[in-house]
């Protein structure tokens, strides 16, 4: 019995070992504000070219760190150009990349929240004063660009010091959106591109925050040193009219266009 169990385990293990992808299916990592937009673009890309992509969404800062650690990604869509420039400076990318979109932030409040979705953040200020706000969600500003921009907007509005102790930090902007809408927090500052997807917009109300209140979210993408043909094709596809139309639908301002 014992021997049979181990033999079958070893056989299974050996058949399981050759896992390295044989064909060219690149791993593409993207900032989580692209969760819906790039997933949709990738779907169209796969339909047209019959080439598969492996998409992973997360915080731009974490991906930059993983790329430095030798992660086998072929393309990186950051929510902030600085991460891309740093990697390029270390010689880890093909070039300095391309600006593909400019992101916007919104304040979102879930249904039933005592807060109003007020883009001037005036109601947030009032809510802090009268105690309606106990928890407010943003992405972790240390490695998520949308979190850093949210902090800048809160500072601009003079709310940072009052709000600091009531913040819940999402690991990335998608998790921040999760926190902001799940009812545990009274609201949050998240990506416009996320609230424009039906899955999120049905969870509450939102209002755009003036983009002069924070540094622009200049989103840069780049091919990494080991990029294969499929990754290169997708890089070009991201700049094609059909992809730009989808990005526009999700509220991104595109390079060369005005909002």
């Amino acid at each position: 019995m014992l021997r049979r169990v181990f033999l079958s385990a070893v056989v299974l293990a050996l058949t399981a070992l050759p896992v390295r992808a044989q064909q060219d299916v690149p791993v593409i990592v993207a900032a989580s504000d692209l969760q819906f937009a790039v997933a949709e673009i990738a779907e169209n890309f796969t339909k047209q070219t019959r080439r598969d992509l492996k998409l992973t969404f997360g915080s731009s800062g974490n991906f930059a760190r993983q790329i430095q650690q030798g992660a086998p990604f072929q393309m990186y869509l950051s929510a902030d150009e600085q991460f891309v420039f740093n990697l390029a400076g270390k010689g880890l990318t093909l070039d300095r990349g391309t600006l593909y979109a400019i992101g916007r932030i919104v304040i979102m409040v879930p249904h039933g929240s005592p807060l109003k979705a007020d883009g001037t953040l005036a109601d947030l200020k009032a809510g802090l004063a009268d105690g309606r706000v106990t928890k407010f969600s943003i992405a972790n500003p240390e490695h998520a660009p949308y979190g850093a921009r949210a902090v800048e907007a809160l500072r601009h509005a003079g709310l940072w010091d009052a709000l600091k102790s009531r913040l819940v930090l999402g690991e990335n902007v998608s998790q921040a959106a999760q926190f902001a809408t799940s009812g545990g927090a009274q609201g949050g500052i998240i990506a416009y591109s996320l609230v424009l997807s039906p899955a999120v917009s049905k969870l509450g109300n939102y209002a755009l925050i003036d983009d002069r209140w924070h540094e622009p979210l200049r989103q840069q993408m780049v091919l990494l040193k080991n990029a294969g043909e499929t990754a290169r094709l997708f890089y070009a596809y991201m700049q094609s009219p059909p992809a730009r139309a989808i990005m526009r639908k999700y509220g991104f301002v595109l390079p060369g266009e005005s909002s």
């Binding site: 896992v19 992808a21 791993v27 492996k54 998409l55 992973t56 997360g58 993983q66 992660a71 086998p72």
Partner: peptide, 9 residues
């Protein structure tokens, strides 16, 4: 892991 589909996810 880095959450790579089919590899570490």
């Amino acid at each position: 892991g880095g959450s790579i589909p089919g590899e570490t996810k």
